[in-house]
Amino acid sequence: MKGYKLVISSRKLKDLQLVKNRCPNKDYISILPLDLAALDKMSEMVNEALSFYGRIDILINNAGISQRSLIMETDLEVYKKLMDVNYMGTIALTKAILPHFVSQKNGHFVTVTSLMGKFGSPYRSGYCGAKHALHGFFDVLRMEHEKDNLKVTLVCPGFVNTNVAINALTADGTPQVDNDTATRNGLSPQVFAKKMVKAIENEKFEVYIGRKEVMGIYLKRFFPILLHKVVLRNKVR
């Protein structure tokens, strides 16, 4: 054990309690229910988090909603929700904690985006747009606050076997409900988490975690037309 003290957050209090109860050092874990869509509550949430231990050293932005729908069929409100949660909620929380990091001249923003923040794939237009936006914002944050000794790590997962596809929004905003083969066969959350922790400890600027889908990063950079053909041929849904 590394002795970290955690504040864990999500909208679901019962799930947070289950997570805490499964951990060996419960005294090192505090629960703070939080909804990223409540943009005006972020300063209040940061103050409450600070009340637990007196300081915060690392913020891990890991909340988000995925999408599975074609552009032609997707309601504009679905795009708004994707941006409000995946982008604006993350930015609001980041800005709320930024003055604390600046004042203590130390802090590490870790933002889980996606390989979809680096290249696109059909049925994920709004999700890709929000994840691309996070890269733009946090690259600038890193530049503006290097003088304050602040760090930024962008973590880009490929397929991880979670409920992300099950909860993905469809064209009318309802959840997809069904899983997909690529997600089901992705990395286990445990394997992914270990790789992410290593990247955080090494203060990586950006890290790509997955299997063969990671090659999309390099195809996009050097062979974008080939990537276009590969993605269409694979018909990932």
Results as ranks from 00 to 15, higher is better:
residue 153 T to V: 10
residue 121 S to N: 03
residue 99 P to D: 10
residue 73 E to L: 07
residue 76 L to V: 10
residue 151 K to H: 09
residue 77 E to K: 04
residue 92 A to H: 13
residue 109 F to S: 08
residue 113 T to S: 06
residue 134 L to K: 05
residue 68 R to T: 03
residue 69 S to T: 13
residue 108 H to C: 03
residue 67 Q to G: 03
residue 82 L to T: 11
residue 117 G to Y: 10
residue 138 F to P: 02
residue 142 R to Q: 07
residue 123 Y to W: 13
residue 77 E to F: 15
residue 139 D to K: 00
residue 80 K to F: 06
residue 83 M to A: 15
residue 125 S to R: 08
residue 154 L to H: 10
residue 71 I to W: 12
residue 155 V to H: 01
residue 122 P to S: 02
residue 109 F to E: 15
residue 110 V to F: 07
residue 77 E to I: 12
residue 74 T to Y: 03
residue 89 G to W: 00
residue 102 V to E: 07
residue 113 T to E: 04
residue 102 V to A: 14
residue 72 M to V: 03
residue 82 L to R: 03
residue 68 R to F: 07
residue 83 M to G: 04
residue 87 Y to L: 10
residue 82 L to N: 12
residue 118 K to A: 09
residue 64 G to F: 06
residue 159 F to V: 08
residue 114 S to L: 01
residue 136 G to A: 05
residue 131 K to S: 09
residue 97 I to A: 15
residue 74 T to E: 14
residue 67 Q to C: 02
residue 128 C to E: 10
residue 144 E to V: 12
residue 92 A to E: 13
residue 143 M to R: 14
residue 90 T to V: 06
residue 88 M to F: 05
residue 142 R to W: 06
residue 76 L to T: 13
residue 77 E to L: 01
residue 141 L to G: 05
residue 97 I to P: 12
residue 161 N to L: 02
residue 68 R to D: 04
residue 129 G to K: 10
residue 130 A to K: 13
residue 87 Y to E: 03
residue 105 K to R: 02
residue 78 V to I: 07
residue 132 H to T: 00
residue 67 Q to S: 11
residue 64 G to K: 01
residue 146 E to G: 11
residue 98 L to S: 11
residue 71 I to E: 04
residue 86 N to D: 10
residue 73 E to T: 06
residue 141 L to Y: 10
residue 74 T to K: 14
residue 148 D to L: 13
residue 143 M to F: 10
residue 163 N to Y: 00
residue 94 T to L: 11
residue 83 M to F: 12
residue 67 Q to H: 01
residue 104 Q to G: 02
residue 140 V to L: 12
residue 105 K to Q: 14
residue 98 L to A: 06
residue 102 V to W: 03
residue 80 K to P: 01
residue 115 L to F: 09
residue 146 E to S: 15
residue 91 I to M: 11
residue 87 Y to T: 03
residue 131 K to M: 09
residue 108 H to N: 04
residue 155 V to Q: 13
residue 132 H to F: 11
residue 148 D to K: 02
residue 150 L to K: 15
residue 141 L to P: 00
residue 114 S to F: 00
residue 118 K to S: 12
residue 88 M to S: 08
residue 137 F to I: 10
residue 67 Q to M: 01
residue 151 K to V: 11
residue 99 P to W: 15
residue 134 L to D: 11
residue 65 I to H: 15
residue 80 K to Q: 08
residue 103 S to T: 09
residue 88 M to Q: 12
residue 107 G to V: 09
residue 112 V to R: 00
residue 123 Y to L: 08
residue 103 S to C: 08
residue 90 T to W: 01
residue 160 V to P: 03
residue 126 G to W: 14
residue 118 K to L: 12
residue 162 T to R: 13
residue 107 G to T: 07
residue 117 G to S: 03
residue 132 H to M: 01
residue 76 L to C: 04
residue 68 R to E: 04
residue 128 C to A: 11
residue 158 G to D: 01
residue 66 S to Y: 11
residue 128 C to K: 00
residue 72 M to A: 02
residue 72 M to I: 15
residue 148 D to N: 06
residue 161 N to S: 06
residue 128 C to N: 08
residue 65 I to Y: 03
residue 135 H to T: 02
residue 78 V to C: 05
residue 94 T to A: 10
residue 106 N to I: 14
residue 116 M to E: 15
residue 68 R to L: 07
residue 142 R to Y: 12
residue 152 V to A: 15
residue 134 L to P: 00
residue 72 M to C: 02
residue 147 K to V: 10
residue 118 K to Y: 02
residue 141 L to Q: 09
residue 89 G to I: 04
residue 83 M to Q: 01
residue 163 N to G: 12
residue 118 K to R: 11
residue 114 S to M: 08
residue 85 V to E: 06
residue 95 K to M: 11
